[in-house]
Design a protein around this nucleic acid. Structure first.
Length: 423
RNA sequence: GGAGAAAUGGCAGAGUGGUCGAAUGCACCAGUCUUGAAAACUGGCGAGGGUCACACCUCCGGGGGUUCGAAUCCCUCUUUCUCCGCCA
């Protein structure tokens, strides 16, 4: 969430930049500032009363020691009265605090100045494109047909066991999946990211820390018996490792990578765009995450983008990079680059990675700070990205590498799969 | 699942009703010494709110209670450790 102090000091800037998301935030921002002022006024009043009560308590202690019981009892009466008035003020204060917090949860992150204005994904700005789209024969198939033809993914079996969106990978398909995960992790660790194995269920505090709660509760699977949530991305457990943390400046940068399955309810998504591997309820993803000094976070974002480019170059997949417009930008992000791989048979781009800088938006919720050189505590910047999301990479591989004689395995993956062709 | 013990500043660890926001050690910061570093010595050093700055307020796992006054007593929840049971 945004810091009230920022809104107070940069009100016009915040409203102007939030307008890139096609929202008029002026009312919310003004309300937040007003609530904060109310809060402080009540706090001041309450503090004065408490101060007096504290003083009386100390005096009573002294009076008891010197045996002046009568005087002490008089002060007790006064103290009881003060206590009554604090109760009312405390209630007011808590109400204001809660109202302010709830309002702040509703305000999305302020977009970076270079975020293009725009409404939909059509307004995203393509900043890079690489790789040739292969000329496929007339008989070229979409990945779900290929999966069936070579018997490597069984969607029906997943339907039977669980429901739609839970595919079963089989034989060479399962092996290729495992190969990709290992390959991605190897690339990430080679780039200095430390590998973690993280829990796949998280508690409420963690969901809240990264911003899935309270806004997107409906998108997560909720295990009500234990009040835990299945993770929609490794971002949630990985980022929450740093909840309530005070770092030293030299501890940064922190670079984390981890593989996890991801679970998403995807309520309300149907139709052709969710066929095959395009949109699943359970999928695998390797994530990279960084905790950075505010001054370095945009350099770190560029590094992450370059890193993901390197992987796609090695896989020799046609891809492009988009700078997301305000309307398409995630709630918590200040700047996001999406990577899309071209699905030749579907003739459309599939998002396979999203690399974002959250600046202090998550750190504020997480209370993730560092002690700067002046000894003051400052919020860190957090960033994360996929490196990479498996199903759509797999879709891209199957479709782009299909031949009349099976599906070729990219050279870089052969050491991991142990075979160079799916047939 | 049952029984017991515990949870204190970045970390370790004292503190069982009244100058305790909290001893001490480590870590950290500044200085002295040194060519430089280490060591040693001197000083500083929890967090949040508030203020121009002070004052002041809050915080000893979370929540509630007793009391004029709670880190300290009571209730409750959570987590950790030990023992027992069960189990991949």
């Amino acid at each position: 969430m945004l810091q009230v102090a920022y809104l107070r000091n940069h009100k016009d800037e915040a409203i102007a930049l939030l307008a890139k998301r096609n929202i008029d935030a002026s009312e919310m921002v003004n309300m937040a500032i007003a609530l904060d002022e109310d809060r402080r006024a009540i706090q001041t009043e309450l503090d004065a009363i408490k101060s007096e009560a504290n003083k009386i308590s100390k005096d009573i202690g002294g009076l008891y020691k010197s045996g002046e019981i009568e005087k002490a009892n008089q002060l007790k009466t006064r103290s009881a009265k003060l206590k009554e008035s604090t109760k009312i003020l405390e209630n007011d204060l808590n109400t204001k605090k809660q109202d302010l917090a709830e309002l702040l949860y509703k305000i999305p992150n302020v977009p970076n100045t270079i975020v293009p204005a725009g409404n939909t994904e059509d307004d995203n700005e393509e900043i890079f494109r690489k790789g040739d789209v292969p000329k496929l024969s007339e008989t070229a198939l979409p990945h779900w047909e290929l999966a069936k033809k070579y018997d490597i993914i069984d969607f029906d079996l997943g339907n039977k066991i669980t429901g739609s969106g839970f595919p079963v990978y089989k034989g060479q398909g399962a092996k290729l999946q495992r190969a990709l995960i290992t390959y991605f992790l190897d690339k990430n660790t080679a780039a200095g990211y430390t590998e973690y194995q993280l829990p796949h269920l998280v508690n409420e505090a963690s969901g809240f820390g990264t911003g899935q709660l309270p806004d997107k509760e409906g998108q997560m699977y909720h295990v009500t018996a234990d009040n835990l949530y299945l993770i929609p991305t490794a971002e949630v457990p990985a980022t929450n490792m740093f909840r309530d943390t005070l770092l030293n400046e030299r501890d940064m940068p922190i670079k984390v990578t981890g593989y996890t399955p991801c679970f998403r309810r995807e309520a309300g998504s149907y139709g052709a765009h969710v066929r095959g591997l395009n949109r699943l309820h359970q999928f695998d993803k390797v994530e990279i995450l960084r905790v950075e000094h505010p001054e370095n976070s945009y350099k770190a974002l560029d590094e992450m983008v370059e890193h993901v480019k390197g992987i796609l170059d090695e896989l020799k997949l046609p891809y492009r990079i988009l700078r997301l417009c305000g309307g398409d930008l995630g709630f918590t992000s200040a700047l996001t680059y999406d990577f899309e791989v071209y699905s030749t048979a579907q003739r459309r781009w599939l998002e396979i990675s999203s690399v974002s800088n959250f600046e202090t938006f998550q750190a504020n919720r997480l209370k993730l700070r560092f002690k700067n050189n002046e000894g003051k505590n400052e919020f860190c910047h957090t960033l994360n990205g996929s490196s990479l999301a498996l199903p759509r990479v797999l879709a891209g591989l199957l479709e782009n590498y299909q031949t009349d004689n099976g599906i070729k395995v990219p050279d870089v993956l052969v050491p991991y799969t142990g075979f160079d062709r799916i047939s």
